Simulated assay, not measured.
Amino acid sequence: RFERNYWKYRNHAKAYRAVTLDAGHVSQALYAAATVQGLGAFVTAAINEAEAGRAFGLRPMAEGALAICGLGWRKAEKTTAELDPGGHVWPLPG
């Protein structure tokens, strides 16, 4: 909700920066929560903003989609590159 942040930051350019930082914090919290539950998570900004806006009934210039986040069960075996630095899901090589 861009309008709310522009009001909060008194129409300063930092308002948009705050929105993007908040989106980053939310996505990192999703990653952390998914990891604790043994789930895989993703976030992508490769979205069609206009289509997302229509789907969610967002008002252009006042509200908008910055990214899409999701989570789900991991496969039993690793078939694609995925972050698992502690080797908790798939054993580390060697």
Rank of each mutant, 00 (worst) to 15 (best):
H25F: 11
A23Q: 03
E51H: 08
L83K: 09
A46S: 13
T35I: 05
R4Q: 09
N48H: 11
K14W: 05
T80F: 02
L71A: 15
L66F: 06
N5L: 15
N5H: 12
A29E: 06
L71C: 15
P60M: 00
V36D: 13
R4L: 09
L66Y: 05
I68A: 14
A76V: 05
T44M: 05
Y16C: 08
E63G: 03
V26K: 04
A46I: 04
A45L: 08
A18C: 06
I47D: 02
F56M: 10
Q28S: 01
A29Y: 08
A18R: 08
D22A: 10
G94E: 08
P60T: 01
L21I: 10
V89T: 15
A52W: 08
R54A: 11
A23L: 03
L58S: 01
F2I: 04
L30Y: 01
A15Q: 01
L66A: 06
Y9E: 08
A50V: 09
V43W: 12
K78T: 01
H12P: 03
W7L: 14
V19N: 14
D22Q: 09
Y16L: 14
Q37V: 05
G53F: 01
E49H: 11
T20N: 07
E77A: 03
Q28A: 03
Y9R: 14
T80S: 02
V36Q: 11
N48C: 08
Q37F: 05
V36R: 13
Y31K: 00
E49T: 12
S27A: 15
R1G: 14
P85D: 08
W73V: 11
R59Y: 07
R1L: 11
A32Y: 11
R17W: 04
W73I: 08
R17Y: 06
E51F: 07
A34G: 02
A45V: 07
A52Q: 13
G57F: 09
V43E: 04
W73A: 14
R74N: 00
A67R: 06
L66W: 06
